[in-house]
């Protein structure tokens, strides 16, 4: 029983990171209709920036987080303005390829600017182990679970109450009509990119705290894919939740079946889910009219 609890708790902890990254995917898909294949790479770049700040001014965890988030905001803005906006109106396929190329570039830039060695992100907190009964969890893992919940709440409120959030839903529903109603689609896209970059940044920092900063960090994007698909590409909250579901699922598969199954569990799950629901669990069904 203790074993099961341990598996589930650590599954939730890693799933919360997948969930955050997956929310980033979904936010961009909802607003712009494309999958940003560079999501994991953005998380990695922000984690490296956080590590650099932590190395330059040690002892200020809030400065590290704040600085990294400002960097995330700028990164999102720059990518949207310089790379994605000129692609407005191009076919989805081409735009998605641009994000793939962006991913390749970011991966090399990390090695160019920093180095191939793994590093620990040391901000003084997050690495200590907390024990609940027999279960050990790092404090950063507790924090990331809380952060996922908070981000979900913020997202829900954003789409429900804020003017921009409503406008984004309108663009997602019908971009043309939304524009006719006076909504600037370009601005909505910019907001989505910035938001997504911020969420990726948060995920990257937590990942770096719990594991380490390394040029492999972008794999987290690949792991979060199934979560986004499971939740439905356009369902931000669904993606967040699915991340946790997948984190637990892969831990159970690794813990009770074969350890080598752990890494492909997510992919197996999405194939099964898509057979039944081709638009994910919470995704909106696209109705085609002739």
């Amino acid at each position: 029983m203790q074993y099961l609890v341990d598996l589930v708790v650590s599954g939730i902890a890693v799933g919360a990171i997948y969930g955050l990254v997956a929310m980033g995917f979904a936010l961009i898909y909802k607003a712009t209709g494309l999958v940003n294949f560079a999501q994991g790479e953005m998380a990695m770049v922000i984690a490296y920036i956080a590590w650099t700040i932590a190395g330059t001014v040690p002892g200020h965890p809030w400065l590290v987080v704040g600085g990294a988030l400002v960097a995330a905001l700028l990164l999102g803005l720059v990518i949207e303005r310089l790379i994605m906006r000129p692609m407005l109106g191009e076919p989805v396929f081409a735009t998605v390829m641009v994000t793939i190329a962006l991913a390749v570039i970011l991966r090399s830039l990390v090695l160019l600017v920093w180095d191939p060695y793994p590093h620990a992100l040391d901000i003084g907190v997050g690495r200590d182990v907390i024990h609940f009964g027999g279960t050990g969890v790092r404090s950063a893992q507790v924090a990331v679970m809380a952060t996922l919940l908070a981000t979900c709440a913020v997202m829900w409120a954003f789409f429900r109450f804020s003017r921009i959030g409503k406008a984004m839903r309108a663009v997602a529903a019908d971009e043309r009509t939304a524009q006719l109603m006076g909504i600037s689609a370009a601005r909505i896209h910019a907001v989505a990119w910035v938001g997504s970059s911020l969420i990726a940044g948060i995920a990257g920092i937590f990942f770096a705290l719990i594991y380490d900063v390394s040029p492999n960090l972008y794999h987290v994007g690949l792991k979060a894919f199934p979560a986004t698909i499971l939740g439905g590409l356009d369902s931000v909250l669904g993606s967040g939740l699915s991340g946790v579901v997948l984190g637990v699922a892969e831990n159970l598969a690794g813990g009770y079946l074969a350890p080598s199954l752990k890494e492909i569990t997510g992919f197996a799950v999405i194939i099964a889910v898509l057979m039944v629901r081709p638009f994910g669990l919470f995704g909106e069904r696209e109705i085609e009219r002739v």
Binding site: Y29, L34, V35, V92, V96, F225, P226, I229, L233, E263, I264, F267, A268, I270, I271, L274, P278, F279, G280
Partner: peptide, 13 residues
């Protein structure tokens, strides 16, 4: 894109 990601999953499997 759903198809694209399913094929990606198959490649891993």
């Amino acid at each position: 894109l759903y198809l694209a990601i399913t094929t990606l999953a198959f490649a891993f499997i």
